[in-house]
């Protein structure tokens, strides 16, 4: 579903990604861990072209992200084409980024209405169904500031799901939450994984990574240091840097 080959990304003179090679199979849940500044969030943002990569290649569902290869040359995609690619990829942010001037339901149906051109009746029915699925069937008419952090993040997940994406990206979805609210968000994500959604999850929740993840990737200083099954990486890390990191967080 996702394939990265030697992906590089610079911000000015700072090289944030120094050659990332990764592959995510359909229905796979990949968790990415690593210290802050290791480039894991940047890599996630490259997958839906919120950041442009400087070198290497990145494919989602067999198509290059943000470019078209034609006659041995890369051509940048038009804004419209990039938007079309992003429709297939759902993204959940650390700070939710719900639209504050819209109710939970309006947040969820906005993109289906304006981007996909779904009819209002159908969008509302589907949106209500999605909000029920994340356990917020009684909160459809609440504005984001009337919801707890955990509820807001669940609305954000429903909003991403409303576009029926093939792939879901999670950027530290529980890092901004009070500890007692983390569980409700992870439960929703666990349900998604069980339904066979392909997911890339940048997280600090080692328990979730161990239990739900199919693969665990440890990134540090812009490179993938180690990847493998979560059990193996967490209990028997092969690299010194992985061991040092895990000893601090476990």
């Amino acid at each position: 579903m996702v394939r990265a080959e030697r992906v590089h990304k610079r911000f000015g003179h700072v090289e944030v990604l120094k050659g990332i090679d990764l592959a995510v199979a359909p229905r796979e849940v990949m968790c990415v861990i690593g210290p802050s500044g290791s480039g894991k969030s940047t890599f996630l943002r490259c997958i839906n072209h919120l950041e442009k990569i400087d070198a290497g290649r990145l494919w989602v569902d067999g198509r290059l992200v943000g470019y078209r290869e034609h006659g041995g040359k890369l051509h940048e995609l038009k804004d419209r084409e990039v938007a079309a690619q992003r429709r297939e990829i759902g993204m959940v942010f650390q700070r939710f980024h719900l639209f504050p001037h819209m109710t939970a339901l309006e947040n969820v149906i906005e993109a289906p209405l304006r981007v996909k051109g779904v009819g209002k009746q159908e969008a509302r029915a589907r949106g209500t169904e999605l909000l029920e699925r994340v356990g917020l069937g009684d909160r459809v008419h609440n504005y984001p500031n009337q919801l707890s952090g955990g509820q807001q993040q669940r609305v954000a997940i429903a909003r991403a799901l409303a576009m029926e994406p093939k792939l879901m990206l999670f950027d530290e979805p529980t890092s901004a939450l009070d500890p007692e609210l983390v569980g409700e968000v992870l439960d929703v994500m666990r349900g998604l994984a069980a339904d066979g959604m392909t997911m890339v999850v940048v997280t600090h929740e080692m328990g979730f990574a161990r239990e739900v993840g199919d693969t665990l990737v440890f990134m540090d200083d812009g490179v993938v240091v180690e990847s493998g099954s979560p059990r193996q990486v967490l209990t028997d890390p092969q690299h010194e840097r992985t061991r040092a990191f895990l000893s601090k967080v476990l």
Binding site: A83, A84, I89, M91, R95, H97, E110, A111, R114, M163
Partner: peptide
């Protein structure tokens, strides 16, 4: 308006003008 709003809108596949009209300007 928080730049995260524009990001969230474009992550949903909205065009720049739709995001401006529906998300940024109302806020």
């Amino acid at each position: 308006v928080d730049p995260g709003q524009t990001e969230a809108a474009s992550a949903l596949g909205m065009s720049r003008s739709t995001a401006m009209r529906r998300i940024v300007l109302p806020q």
